[in-house]
Amino acid sequence: MNLFRLLGDMTHLLSIVVLLLKIRTVKSCAGISLKTQELYVIVFLTRYLDLFTKYYSVYNTAMKLVFLGTSIGIVWYMRYHKVVKQTYSKDEDTFKHYFLILLSIILALLIHRAFDVIEVLWTFSLYLEAVAILPQLVLLQKSRNIDTLTGDYVFLLGAYRALYILNWVYRFLMENHKFRWIPWISGLVQTALYADFFYYYIKSWKNREKLKLPA
């Protein structure tokens, strides 16, 4: 495993820690899109089916279980925890996320490497992950007040995929790997969706101002 990959995974993990910190200690999920969180549960459930069919490493298995467990836990808190669920910005979380699922299903059925259940679901999970942040970004645009933890959470989530791109470049050059268009293009699209957010996040950080996205 190269450094970019490890940093990417750690950034992803850290984003979840930051979100759990907000939910468990501040007891708030204000500004967090439940729709995006539900999409992540679907992404992990469909991607990690190979937990049952293939073993890679203790690290790999442990991380998959952590991502599955925490994503389900976060959705549970936002839907059912009696204090946390009252802080949910329901009226602003309006993105039609079913549309993203449908789009990813159609795309996975049309473009995949092999037509079998696990491969198509794996491909579906990549397409869905690429766009899963959209409801969250739309919610942020509508939020008048983006708190630090929410801003940091989204930034770390975007940084994770950007680091994965460097990891793919490294593996292509150093480990002599072949082209893998589906994950690469999905990953590029996913990272590109954050471009606008990155710009305003870094700007607010440099000017020591509160993060605010233009509507």
Partner: peptide, 10 residues
């Protein structure tokens, strides 16, 4: 390299 290499990622 193994053909499934991308799948060793998360």
């Amino acid at each position: 390299p193994p053909s499934s290499y991308v799948k060793d990622e998360l």
